[in-house]
């Protein structure tokens, strides 16, 4: 088992190369191997350090093993990549590595989905909408969104690779970090509050001279949101909106 007190250093240039490849980990995402090829692609610069280099048996065996099926949240896949690199370079038995590859996807997927896709992304989006509603210009809104979002995005990838590398196959402990366990609930509450403020403020700014119609707009929003919520699971809101806009455009043309 890897993850002892004496963690070997992962050279900075190698770390940078792996991080760059992690950004493209979903480059050939497909329904059969999912992230599989991307995991091998991200690990490849480090696996060249195995005995015999790129022509060695160890390199070839590792590349073949890691290009098989794997699924995880793309940002937290960095945790698995770090742990698997450490395991391969430490010569951990193949059976142990395979067990890790089977066990890791579930937690790495669910934590990432709740923390990022259902939490941090809508929170940053709502912050940017609020900034627009309060009168911020294009540059300020775009920078606010990108800097806020990517602070956590890039931070998570860098932390994940580091945690995986230092703790090896025992990296599951890192996922017990309070930030990852309790963070999604706190982020969801913050998203609820900020989005609640942002939606009316941004809509108010978007309507512009049409603010005289605010009462009608509010009634339509309440009715529309209720309809979309009731139809959840059967119709997506954006598809209903496409139909509604098509009908509206046709109506204005033929009336």
């Amino acid at each position: 088992m890897t993850g002892d007190a004496q963690t070997p250093a992962l050279p900075l240039h190698l770390r940078a190369a792996i991080l760059l490849r992690l950004l493209a980990i979903q480059g050939v995402w497909n329904y059969e191997t999912m992230l599989g090829n991307g995991i091998a692609f991200a690990m490849e610069p480090a696996l060249r350090r195995l005995p015999g280099g790129r022509q060695g048996e160890a390199y070839r065996t590792a590349m073949a093993r890691h290009s098989g099926y794997f699924n995880a949240h793309p940002y937290l896949a960095a945790v698995a990549v770090g742990a698997l690199i450490r395991a391969e370079l430490d010569g951990v038995p193949a059976a142990q590595i395979d067990r890790f590859r089977t066990a890791a996807p579930g937690p790495l997927g669910s934590v990432g989905d709740r923390l990022i896709w259902a939490g941090w992304l809508p929170l940053c989006s709502s912050l940017a909408l609020l900034a627009y509603g309060l009168g911020a210009g294009p540059l300020a809104v775009v920078l606010l969104f990108l800097l806020t979002y990517n602070f956590v995005h890039l931070g998570l990838r860098i932390w994940g690779l580091h945690a995986g590398w230092t703790q090896g196959l025992r990296v599951a402990q890192a996922l017990a970090n309070p930030l990852l366990r309790q963070g999604p609930a706190h982020v969801a509450r913050a998203t609820a509050l900020v989005a609640g403020v942002a939606l009316p403020v941004a809509a108010h700014a978007l309507i512009g001279p049409g603010r005289v119609l605010l009462g009608s707009v509010l009634a339509a929003v309440a009715a529309g949101a209720t309809l979309v919520t009731l139809l959840h699971g059967r119709f997506e809101g954006w598809r209903l909106a496409t139909l509604a806009l098509a009908t509206f455009v046709l109506y204005t043309m033929v009336r």
């Binding site: 809508p122 709502s126 998203t191 609820a192 989005a195 609640g196 939606l199 809509a203 978007l206 309507i207 049409g210 009608s216 707009v217 339509a220 929003v221 309440a222 009715a223 529309g224 949101a225 209720t226 309809l227 979309v228 919520t229 959840h232 809101g237 954006w238 209903l240 909106a241 509604a244 806009l245 509206f248």
Partner: peptide, 13 residues
């Protein structure tokens, strides 16, 4: 159009 978009956004949140 703002009413349609806001309804979808509110339901999404």
């Amino acid at each position: 159009v703002v009413a349609v978009a806001s309804a979808v956004g509110l339901a999404a949140i």
